[in-house]
Amino acid sequence: MIRRFGYPVLATLLVAVLATLVYDYAWIWGVPLWLRNATGLLLFSCIMLSPAWVYGLSRLSGATWGRAVRLALVLPVLWHIKEIIAACKIFGIGPGIYTGLQGPYLFYYGLCFLAMGLGHLLVSLFWHERSGASVWRTPLFLLPLITLGSVEGLGFALFKYDLLFFQGFLAGYRALFGG
């Protein structure tokens, strides 16, 4: 039995899967470019922004904030796993899994939390308008992005060393896999 706060994430997953099918394969059947572009926009919006609405709608449906965070991470984690599987097919299992630690993916999670923060803010404001509930301000949703940005920024500023995207990431790859 799916509880009602699970509906937003299920609906988003369904939209994302359908959009993927259209976006990746519809060109074969001559589906016009504008429609494929529209589904592409929908798909990438689901991947990049869905944590905002999944979190918000889950909260409005009764989920605790911790549960809403977990629900909001379902699609990002699935997308990340899909990326890792694709990398495993190219580089083998070990390096493929390691690929999942590359900076763009880490920053992607940072953006997901940022989106959740936006969802959280909108829900809090909505509740505040409806019932006068106090707005819960928290820096927690910004923390992952700030941490990652600080690590990368400081490494670059102090040592001209990019830790997460290529240099440090590749050093780790060579240490682990001898590439």
């Binding site: 990746d24 074969i28 470019l33 494929r36 592409g40 926009l41 990438f44 990398a87």
Partner: peptide
């Protein structure tokens, strides 16, 4: 086979 958002797809 291409579309406008391809630079964001599949790695």
């Amino acid at each position: 086979e291409a579309d406008s958002w391809l630079a964001f797809a599949d790695g």
